[in-house]
Design a protein around this nucleic acid. Structure first.
Lengths: 150, 150
DNA sequence: GCACGGTACATGCGCATGCATTGAATGCAA
DNA sequence: TTGCATTCAATGCATGCGCATGTACCGTGC
């Protein structure tokens, strides 16, 4: 399931972190630098972890939204625009992301009866399973990177 | 000076922010969501502002490093790898970014006398000027997005 | 019914990014 | 000196992303 091969983007985060790390930043720019550092570090680890299961960070975000929002039987699903409000992606990026997830059999796109412009997206059993399998890993990464005693 | 035409990436940040906004998040995932939201929102604004001057957020980060680190006369400059430790970019991305800045006449690449594999990068007067012109805008965005009374 | 503006999603396109690799230069050891 | 592992930066390549646009559909006003 090669879904996405690359995109680890682990860049200078780890090295860059050490500078402003070791203490909350002072000024605005320091605060911003810290945000960038934490974001980069965590994103990096997250992606690295998720990639072993064929997912990127954004993919997981979407799966997570779908998994949280739908009943256990994966009935209704979400409108694309509803997902868009929960995820930091442009509409076009989200559209393509859903396309990839669909191609990998993790979600299904369906017509939206109320508004035929709309598209309903819902998890497949396979998608739900993968999400369940991967979520603990994500939580682990978060606690590893965000918890104070890191 | 068209440097970089696109890359506003203003995605769903503004909308997505509203959800977990209005209060620090509770759990780890909430905390992470907040980081994502703040990062996306601020990045968006920053890019939007900087683009009016032909720069992207990463471009400014590099200019900022160079401006802070070199004496007023813009003498010495930095090694690429030194810049890399201050910026959350891969080595390759940084190399190309510097290439773009050079093409736009904002920085200059020079030989490194101590290690001829290395490259010294330093601001041109034009680069220094642009940085000085743009820095207040960046600070303004940060205070607008990060300050408590936002 | 029809025209028109607005909305929802998909697609064309250009760009920046990361990974892997390359080529040059260094430093160490035989 | 030669040989080899290492490091620095540049480049080939694949991918995801945002913007602009396209297409289908909705809703309103006529």
């Amino acid at each position: 399931m090669p879904m996405q091969q690359k995109a680890f983007f682990c860049y200078g985060a780890l090295m860059a972190a050490q500078k402003s790390e070791a203490g909350a930043a002072s000024g605005l720019v320091g605060q911003w630098r810290d945000i960038l550092a934490v974001h980069a570090r965590t994103m990096c680890e997250l992606d690295r972890e998720l990639h072993q299961h064929g997912l990127g960070a954004s993919d997981f975000e979407v799966l997570d939204v779908l998994a949280e929002g739908s009943a256990e039987d994966g009935t209704s699903g979400f409108r694309v625009q509803e997902i868009a409000t929960q995820v930091h992606l442009s509409q076009s990026a989200l559209s393509r992301l859903i396309g990839r997830l669909e191609k990998d059999g993790l979600v299904e796109r369906g017509m939206c009866s109320e508004d035929r412009r709309g598209v309903r997206v819902c998890l497949t059993p396979k998608g739900r399973e993968l999400h369940g399998e991967v979520r603990p890993l994500q939580r682990a990464v978060l606690s590893r990177m965000l918890e104070p005693g890191a």
